[in-house]
Design a protein around this nucleic acid. Structure first.
Length: 456
RNA sequence: GUCCCCAUCGUCUAGAGGUCCAGGACGUCGCCCUCUCACGGCGGCAACACGAGUUCGAAUCUCGUUGGGGACGCCA
């Protein structure tokens, strides 16, 4: 492969961007970028019943969020319908395809019989050489490919290796429906050819389709793209990832507070590896990604690993960006509180593995809090600390800690006890960022207020 | 049912005949660090599905078994 490589992602807009689709898109994108080729986007909206504008929007948004950008404008398959049908009709004229007048009931019957006999259910080709004049009156025909009945169709898959299927296994597929619209089989092949696509990474649920695609490419005499079929992503229980696993759409991952770079990194490691590397930046991925390291065994989505990865990217993320992500979840905040959060962000992001956890952790800076009156011993400590801190001018985490530590040593009061008392007075919580860090974030006025609030 | 694919720790995987009584990461357990929690550091537990071959030698090659997955639409 080289810089002439053209890959594509071709989702059908019948719903959100599926996480598995996102991985497919990522792999194709990576491959194109690696070789300096092109990555195209095609919306396969030939099924008008199920395709929606909202779904198109959701898919584009999902890709953008993951920072997977396509070259040129997306191609809408529906806009190319005329060309697809025209080509099919040409094939009929050339005797390479034919009209079939079978009714749905007839086909149903055929499949039932085949299954009963232990054969693979398929169309028997009964109209292949029959005179269309014998067609039942008024019946609308489909166009079927006159597929080879002898020999094998061979696929040299860049992931799976050589796979051979006997042509007897494949039936004469429908190219154009009885309503005159082209099928997926035809459209995909024509569009891939017209768009110059020469490399296709896709889920291995498409594997059997590929043999049909190859037959169509052959009948047109077009060159066949390289294919790589990657195993599907399964849920934690080993079955195909579905709604019941919760997180199916990339939007769901965003809602759960994951960062796009973490999602990409996680997806990248599902079915692809580069030695022992785990945390892989987009730049490194682009440099390293080839089809050679694609695995052929199915993998399960590991949410624990995603979370760990996300924690890594959270810690590395820009503070202002994290604040923006946080505000996107909870709405805008007064300037003063935003400032507090920003000041405390380093401590916050170190503890939160998702934006949702960041939100929970940041509550100490968002919620107003006044501690209830403490017990006598604690009150005594707080009174002394309050007195000490009131004279502190350098209200920084470092200095505050230094002063309190000195006090602790001098008076022989346990530092842990002091810190615990402060934590409680400041937040009323057991788990928080460091107390001096919080003091700095609150500022002297609010910090002093909280410490002494319960003392009166 | 038919066809196709897959098979290393719980999970993601490294491994392309000897360097593997199998390495990394996540998770888990223990310890250290420590103002709580995290982070970080150190260590433990934990896998080549099974059975035959081929070979001086197999996680790596072949066959079979078992297990898992996918496809069999006038959906894509």
């Amino acid at each position: 492969m080289n810089s002439d490589i053209v890959t594509r992602f071709a989702p059908s807009p019948t719903g959100f961007l599926h996480i598995g689709g996102a991985r497919t898109a990522l792999f194709n994108w990576l491959l194109a970028r690696h070789y300096g080729g092109k990555f195209l986007l095609r919306i396969e909206d030939t099924d008008r019943e199920r395709s929606t504008a909202e779904a198109v929007e959701a898919i584009l948004e999902g890709l953008q969020w993951l920072d997977i950008c396509w070259d040129g404008d997306p191609v809408f398959q529906s806009s190319r319908l005329r060309r697809h049908v025209e080509l099919a009709e040409n094939l009929v004229k050339e005797g390479k395809a034919y009209y079939c007048y079978c009714s749905l009931e007839e086909l149903e019957e055929m499949r039932r019989e085949a299954k009963a006999k232990g054969l693979s259910p398929k169309y028997d080709g009964r109209w292949r050489d029959r005179d269309p004049a014998e067609a039942p009156p008024g019946a609308k025909p489909v166009i079927r490919l006159k597929a080879p009945s002898e020999g094998n169709t061979v696929l040299h898959d860049v992931v799976q290796g050589e796979i051979i299927v006997s042509n007897g296994q494949l039936d004469d597929m429908i190219l154009v429906r009885s309503d005159g619209t082209p099928t997926f089989m035809l459209s995909v092949v024509v569009d891939d050819h017209d768009m110059g696509v020469n490399c296709v990474i896709r889920g291995d649920d498409h594997l059997t389709n590929t043999f049909r695609h190859i037959q169509i490419f052959n009948v047109f005499g077009w060159s066949i793209p390289e294919y790589g079929h990657i195993p599907l992503i399964h849920g934690p229980d080993g079955v195909k990832l579905s709604k019941r696993h919760g997180a199916l759409s990339v939007g769901a991952y965003r809602d759960m507070g994951y960062l796009p770079e973490a999602v990409c990194n996680c997806l990248l490691r599902l079915g692809w590896s580069h030695g022992d590397d785990e945390v892989i930046s987009r730049e490194q991925a682009t440099e390293w990604f080839t089809t050679e390291n694609l695995g052929k065994s199915p993998s399960r989505m590991d949410f624990a690993k995603l979370k760990s990865l996300n924690g890594h990217y959270m810690r590395a993320a820009d503070n202002k960006r994290l604040l923006d992500e946080l505000l996107r979840k909870i709405g805008d905040l007064p300037e003063e509180k935003k400032q507090r959060i920003l000041t405390g962000m380093n401590g916050l992001k170190q503890r939160a593995k998702t934006i949702l956890e960041l939100r929970d952790m940041a509550a100490v800076y968002i919620d107003d809090f006044t501690a209830p009156a403490p017990d006598a011993e604690t009150a005594e400590i707080l009174r002394k600390i309050s007195f000490l801190l009131s004279s502190v001018d350098d209200w920084s985490e470092k200095n505050l800690e230094r002063r309190v530590k000195a006090f602790s040593e001098e008076k022989g009061v346990s530092f842990g006890k002091i810190a615990g008392s402060l934590r409680n007075a400041l937040t009323g919580k057991k788990i928080t960022p460091g107390v001096f860090e919080m003091l700095e974030s609150f500022g002297k006025v609010e910090g002093m207020r909280r410490i002494s609030a319960g003392l009166l």
